[in-house]
Design a binder for these strands. Structure first.
Length: 253
DNA sequence: ATGGCTTCATAGTGAAGA
């Protein structure tokens, strides 16, 4: 089983890269974020023609999430049932015996912004939602763009970002609250203390200088974590012509 | 350098991302 997450920053722009990536990497499940597509603009037939299934929640201009899979997706949940949200940031589905929850968490802009209060409420709802999901599903993967760097080893310039958006103690506590439900940050577990990133700013040659952050995560229930042997952050995709600013991340068991 | 780049949007001293 190979499960991946990728914030594509516009599926319209990145579709050829996503299709190439699916061909090359052949994941069982790919969670996508930032589709930036309206619901009826999702290229569903392109995926089904390739033999993939898809559950997706679009929105005009911003956000948008999808789960691409080899096997059928059942019990699809669009948006958190406990949090009415005008923004399309959550989709969950059951794939065989596995509950898959794909999230594009709120950025927040700055700690002083109204968007930070939305981020706080959103994570609070996510925690309650996942607690409920875990009560129903023993095998669960929560993955996507969390917009939180959980520790200082998850960013290249910790001093510059200390206490700021994506890196504040408060946001890190929200992330920890998810782990406290009984989930493990699979990539951090496998990578030990290694400094690794999943996102690099388009500006300032940040990718070439490896000035990044690890904000895309894959969280697993213990039974799945036990079997998981390998992870990869696909920096090759981030090196492509006209890339997303996020790299695909995958784990395997 | 409260910007840098990229996207979607509109034709804005643009908005948002992270």
């Amino acid at each position: 089983m190979k499960i991946a997450t990728w914030n594509v920053n516009s599926l319209k722009v990145r579709l050829p890269q996503v299709l190439d990536w699916l061909e090359q990497e052949s994941p069982d499940i790919l969670a996508l974020q930032e589709l930036k597509l309206e619901q009826d603009k999702f290229p569903i037939e392109t995926f089904t023609d390739m033999g993939f299934q898809a559950a997706y929640l679009g929105q005009k201009t911003y956000n948008g999430v999808a789960i691409i899979s080899k096997k059928p997706l059942e019990n699809v949940q669009c948006n958190m049932p406990n949090f009415p949200d005008p923004q399309s940031r959550f989709i969950a589905a059951t794939h065989d015996n596995l509950r898959v929850v794909c999230v594009y968490c709120v950025n927040g802009e700055s700690l002083e912004s109204d968007k930070f209060q939305y981020k706080k409420q959103w994570f609070n709802a996510l925690c309650a939602c996942i607690e409920n999901e875990l009560a129903q599903h023993k095998n669960l993967v929560l993955l996507g763009d969390f917009n939180i760097a959980p520790a200082d080893c998850d960013l290249a310039e910790a001093e510059k970002h200390a206490g700021k958006i994506l890196c504040s103690d408060e946001e890190r506590q929200w992330f920890q609250s998810l782990l406290d439900l009984g989930l493990t940050d699979a990539v951090r577990f496998l990578a030990k203390e290694e400094k690794i990133y999943t996102w690099w700013d388009y500006r300032m040659n940040a990718f070439r200088r490896n000035l990044g952050m690890r904000i895309d995560h894959i969280l697993l229930t213990p039974n799945l974590m036990q079997k998981t042997t390998k992870y990869q952050i696909d920096k090759n995709a981030r090196s492509a012509e006209r890339p997303s600013d996020h790299a695909p991340v995958w784990i395997e068991w």
